[in-house]
């Protein structure tokens, strides 16, 4: 089942999800479904899609910000490479390789 869902292009997965949400949201808002809780929170429910978009935006900014801040700097790897480049050039020169700038 899961692999079957995986085969559906992402665009259609999103369309299915969004239209499912919108139909439930509209059904509640236009009172096709009668619920006590809806009458008391009509305004909140009206703005629900907007709230969700804002919440998702905040979540995204937080995740990206955290990941940028915790992105490792591999300074030792760069130093090691610099050292090895020198070694390699010296060794290859003795083996007869000609470098352009040496």
């Amino acid at each position: 089942m899961y692999t079957y869902i995986l085969q559906i292009p992402k665009l259609f997965q999103w369309l299915i999800g969004v239209s499912l949400f919108l139909s439930i949201w509209l059904a509640v808002l236009l009172e096709y479904v009668k619920l006590d809780i809806v009458d008391r929170n009509k305004f909140t429910i009206l703005l629900l899609p907007l709230y969700l978009i804002i919440a998702f935006g905040c979540y995204s900014v937080a995740v990206i910000g955290y990941r940028v801040a915790t992105f490792n700097n591999c300074d030792e790897a760069a130093d090691e490479l610099k050292q090895q480049i020198k070694e390699a050039r010296a060794d290859l020169s003795t083996k007869g390789l000609k470098f352009k700038d040496s």
């Binding site: 995204s60 995740v63 990206i64 940028v68 490792n72 700097n73 591999c74 300074d75 790897a77």
Partner: peptide
């Protein structure tokens, strides 16, 4: 322990942002 060397803030932001978009969409 993965990471990068020689990237400034802007480059890291673009990389992480692009990666996030890919994670969400694909």
């Amino acid at each position: 322990d993965g990471g990068v060397h020689g990237w400034d803030f802007k480059r890291k932001l673009i990389s992480r942002g692009a990666n996030y978009i890919v994670q969400v969409l694909l």
